[in-house]
Simulated scan of single mutants.
Amino acid sequence: MSRSTVRPTNVERYFSEDDVIVSKTDPKGIITYANKIFLTIADYSEEEVLGKPHNIIRHPDMPAGVFRLMWNRIQSGNEIFAYVCNMAKNGDHYWVLAHVTPNFDRDRRIVGYHSNRRVPDKHILPVIKDLYAQMRAEERRHASSKEGAAASVGIINAMLDRKGLTYDEYIHGL
């Protein structure tokens, strides 16, 4: 089944609070490593994910603005924590709190990215889901996906300005 034909099932998957989903990518986001927990929750074999773009597990309801924010942070050499809804091979979904960090060579050039994902706090998810719904609604108002993603990031920035917080302060304060 091709990724383009997979539709969300609205069935949520869960993993243990002791589990950590781990993946590594090259600088372009191509998967170079996926641990057993990643493969199990996403229902892929190692052969199916290695060499593929990490967005193979992207849920279509995730705002593009979240990924734009994430890429901007990690490509500039910074880490990021973000709540993400991923999609398994069959269309089931699972929520994670992702911690993504760049990997550097000796000359401080980014040579890839490392992501650890844990079970998110279930009490925080309603806040995140509401924010993401606002972001997706804003994205749909734009004909261009690029403009939509930029406007979606604007939703986060406006919220942070109102609260007088940085992104990191907001995420860690939830």
Rank of each mutant, 00 (worst) to 15 (best):
T5R: 10
V6C: 07
R7H: 09
P8E: 14
N10G: 09
N10M: 10
Y14S: 10
Y14K: 11
Y14L: 04
F15D: 02
S16Q: 09
D18W: 03
D19C: 08
D19H: 13
V20T: 15
V20R: 07
V22P: 00
V22E: 08
K24F: 06
K24P: 05
T25G: 10
T25E: 05
D26L: 09
D26F: 09
D26G: 14
P27F: 04
G29Q: 13
G29R: 10
G29L: 11
I30Y: 06
T32K: 11
T32G: 09
Y33A: 04
Y33R: 06
A34L: 07
N35S: 05
N35V: 12
K36G: 07
I37R: 11
I37C: 07
I37E: 06
F38G: 06
L39E: 09
T40Q: 12
T40V: 00
I41R: 04
A42I: 04
D43A: 15
E46Y: 02
E48L: 07
E48C: 03
L50Y: 10
L50S: 03
K52M: 14
K52A: 14
P53L: 06
P53E: 09
H54I: 10
N55R: 10
I56R: 05
I57V: 15
R58L: 08
H59Q: 06
P60T: 12
M62K: 08
M62Y: 09
P63L: 11
A64F: 03
A64H: 12
A64S: 14
G65I: 10
G65P: 07
V66A: 15
V66D: 08
R68W: 02
R68P: 00
R68M: 08
L69V: 04
W71S: 03
W71K: 11
N72I: 05
N72Q: 15
R73N: 12
I74P: 06
Q75R: 15
Q75V: 11
Q75H: 11
Q75M: 13
G77I: 12
N78S: 13
N78V: 06
E79V: 08
F81T: 13
A82G: 13
Y83Q: 05
V84S: 03
V84W: 02
